[in-house]
Simulated assay, not measured.
Amino acid sequence: MKSILAGALMFGLVACAGGVQKVGVYHSLNARQCEQGGLSLAELKQSLSAAGVQTADVGKVTDDGRMRVTVCGAPDGKVGVFQIDKSDLDRARQAGFELWPARQ
């Protein structure tokens, strides 16, 4: 039983080591409270693509988790998050994206 468990664990480690590591990156949607507008996920994905960064997912919109004052015209804290290959992280950063989660 121990050898089966050890083999299964070893296979899992090899599979992880041989695969491509993914990381999350994010960029503000630049939206403001009480206002329409801001960037779309499609626009953010296009900026990644223009920087030579491939992303298979469509991304998601979420809150950056920071406390914000509630007042019209202030940033709303919405960000677009995408999964990319870890090897593309520098190119994504040059395009204005940061590693997600922002606080680790």
Rank of each mutant, 00 (worst) to 15 (best):
M1E: 13
K2L: 15
L5S: 09
A6D: 09
G7M: 10
A8L: 15
M10E: 03
F11S: 13
L13W: 10
L13G: 15
A15N: 08
A17G: 12
A17V: 14
G19L: 14
V20P: 00
Q21E: 15
V23S: 01
G24H: 03
H27Q: 12
L29Q: 02
N30A: 13
N30V: 03
Q33V: 07
Q36S: 14
G37D: 02
S40C: 08
L41M: 08
K45T: 04
Q46A: 14
Q46R: 12
L48I: 08
S49P: 00
G52E: 02
G52Y: 05
A56Q: 14
D57V: 09
V58W: 08
K60D: 02
K60N: 07
D63R: 01
R66Y: 12
M67N: 12
R68W: 04
V69F: 11
T70M: 14
V71N: 13
C72Q: 11
G73P: 10
D76T: 05
G77K: 03
G80W: 02
V81E: 01
V81D: 01
F82L: 01
Q83A: 13
Q83T: 06
Q83K: 11
S87C: 02
D88Y: 09
L89N: 04
D90Y: 10
R91P: 01
A92E: 11
R93C: 06
Q94C: 00
A95R: 06
G96E: 08
F97T: 02
E98V: 11
L99S: 10
L99D: 06
W100P: 02
W100C: 00
Q104I: 01
Q104S: 09
